[in-house]
């Protein structure tokens, strides 16, 4: 086998070097090499969104990416968004609104929602709208479309949307 180039990956602000098998997904790197098990493995095929993390600020499916491809990238996981002693506004809103049942999809939902809020601020369009700059707290349908990459098999969607709207509303008000 040819020599695999190393990858230096910043995860929640701390650098880690990866020199291992290039088959290692970013998801497995986070969970198995770093022991950061907040990021979940659902389908492992990019269909459920449970493994959502931020790469350089953008939400991606960490299961469909190789760790070795992330040399120089900054990764943010749910542990970087907030820990039990210091929850983010979104995390608090999910607790308050019961935005889950089993909780397995929740880290991915929250990572996805946090990036979605930034996409809305940047006026990214969706399949439903050309842009949302004029509407700081979009409609439920708009949020559902933009969160459609995250499945919840318990079906907690109503409460997930309520939590996201609550967190967004508080951000706008503050």
């Amino acid at each position: 086998m040819a020599h695999t180039p190393a990858a230096r990956i910043a995860v929640n602000g701390t650098y880690h070097d990866y020199n291992g098998d290039p088959r290692r997904s970013l998801l497995d790197f986070l969970r198995l090499e770093l022991g950061m098990t907040g990021t979940k493995k659902g389908c492992d095929h990019g269909q459920c969104g449970a493994c959502t993390v931020h790469v350089n600020g953008r939400r991606v499916n960490s299961c469909l990416s190789l760790a070795v491809m992330h040399d120089g990238d900054e990764i943010t996981t749910i542990e970087g968004i907030g820990m039990p002693d210091k929850l983010s506004a979104l995390q608090k809103a999910f607790v308050e609104h019961d935005g889950y049942q089993c909780g397995y999809c929740t880290p991915g939902q929250i990572c996805s929602a946090a990036a979605m809020i930034e996409e809305l601020k940047a006026d990214w369009p969706s399949a439903l709208t050309e842009g949302v700059a004029s509407n700081p707290v979009p409609s439920d349908d708009e949020l559902r479309e933009r969160m459609s990459g995250n499945l919840c098999r318990c079906g907690a969607y109503d409460n997930i949307i309520a939590a996201i709207k609550d967190a967004m509303g508080k951000e706008v008000a503050s």
């Binding site: 990019g46 499916n61 990416s65 979605m116 399949a127």
Partner: peptide
């Protein structure tokens, strides 16, 4: 083009 792209996949996949 924008509409067709946004009709496909999910935000996470479109970011990659």
């Amino acid at each position: 083009l924008s509409k067709a792209i946004l009709a496909g996949a999910s935000p996470q996949l479109r970011n990659k």
